[in-house]
Amino acid sequence: MAKQQSDRTTLDLFADEKRPGRPKTNPLPRDLQLKINKRNQLKRDKEKGFRRVELKLDASTLDHLNQLAKAQQISRADLIQWLIKQHIDSCSAAGVQE
Rank of each mutant, 00 (worst) to 15 (best):
A2I: 15
A2C: 14
A2K: 14
Q5P: 03
Q5C: 05
S6P: 00
S6R: 07
D7Q: 07
T10P: 03
D12Y: 08
D12C: 04
L13F: 09
L13P: 02
L13C: 08
A15K: 08
D16L: 11
G21I: 01
G21D: 01
K24T: 05
T25L: 10
T25W: 07
N26M: 05
P27I: 03
L28Q: 09
L28E: 12
P29Q: 08
D31C: 02
L32C: 00
Q33L: 00
Q33N: 00
L34P: 01
I36N: 03
N37V: 00
N37K: 08
K38V: 01
R39P: 01
R39K: 04
N40P: 00
Q41H: 06
Q41D: 07
Q41Y: 05
L42E: 09
R44F: 10
K46C: 13
E47K: 07
E47M: 09
E47P: 02
E47H: 07
K48I: 06
K48V: 05
K48D: 15
R52F: 12
E54Y: 10
E54K: 06
L55W: 11
L55C: 10
K56G: 12
L62V: 06
H64C: 01
H64R: 00
L65N: 00
N66Y: 03
Q67D: 11
L68Y: 01
A69E: 01
A69S: 05
K70P: 02
A71Q: 04
A71D: 08
Q72D: 11
Q72K: 11
Q72P: 02
Q73L: 06
Q73N: 13
L79W: 03
L79E: 01
I80E: 00
Q81D: 07
W82F: 11
I84C: 07
Q86R: 06
H87C: 06
H87Y: 10
I88F: 12
D89Q: 09
D89E: 13
C91D: 12
C91V: 07
A93N: 12
V96Q: 14
Q97C: 08
